[in-house]
Design a protein around this nucleic acid. Sequence first.
DNA 1: CTACAATCTAGAGTTCACTCTAGATCAAGT
DNA 2: ACTTGATCTAGAGTGAACTCTAGATTGTAG
Lengths: 143, 143
Amino acid sequence: MNEEFTIGQVAEKTGLSIHTIRYYEKEGILPIIKRNKSGTRIFEYEDIQWINLLNCLRNTGMPIAQLKEYADLTLEGDQTGEKRLEILKKQKEKIEEQVNTLKSHIDLLNLQMEWYPRLKKVNIQFDHVMKTWLKDGKLPPEL
Amino acid sequence: MNEEFTIGQVAEKTGLSIHTIRYYEKEGILPIIKRNKSGTRIFEYEDIQWINLLNCLRNTGMPIAQLKEYADLTLEGDQTGEKRLEILKKQKEKIEEQVNTLKSHIDLLNLQMEWYPRLKKVNIQFDHVMKTWLKDGKLPPEL
DNA sequence: CTACAATCTAGAGTTCACTCTAGATCAAGT
DNA sequence: ACTTGATCTAGAGTGAACTCTAGATTGTAG
């Protein structure tokens, strides 16, 4: 479990580019990365874990600035656990919201797609649905 | 059903800013918007429907350039129906993928959150899970 | 008629998150 | 030792999608 990785290997494993990993380090959202005597970065297994968490948060829309906050809290140590937990909880809620939004987007697309084959008839329905959409931002209950 | 709206009203109804609506028009992804004799835009109900569709596609990651394609196809008329249907179908699949990704992100966050209360014990599990994650990009089957 | 808020255009500026470049150094195989 | 490919830094450049500005014009409530 004391494997070591070069930046290239980490890039491959995490799906980030080498540039991006260095950029993240510069932004201070990576833990302190070990170096060998000539300055080449040496990543450990833990670092990859961390990057995967970052990726998860980034992919769900958390901006770098907030990742920085999270990283700083982590640096402060155990007593910030609660705060970090809170951040993760909030992000989870945000993702759940995103899932719901995406689902209603799927509904809208399905609707729009039905529109093509049965034009005249569904046009009226569509109109009705759109009115509901405009009014309260969701599909009418009878769908 | 022949209601008319100002740009400000449309902004409020669609959640876009006034600037963004004008920007979208400049990019050619809005239908031709009526004007009154002195040049003020007059939006109709249809235009709002269209913007809602745009919003749906944009929010799920479709770039402006592709919206432009879609808009151009629509301008060409009925004979492009199939192509447009195809675009919407693909986007729907993309959204479904996004939902799945988000769900596995939630799993990862849940895991990371469990980590805090029961530290030592779950650390090992977490490690195991992360290894699976790194290897095949998903959670181990036993979870 | 008079304010005052909303709209208009063209174009410049901003933000975010990378992404790339140049020029130097280093690591590993033969 | 030599070569080739990977890595290093500092800093510039990019692309997407807005977002804002200035200066003029218009719509409307009192």
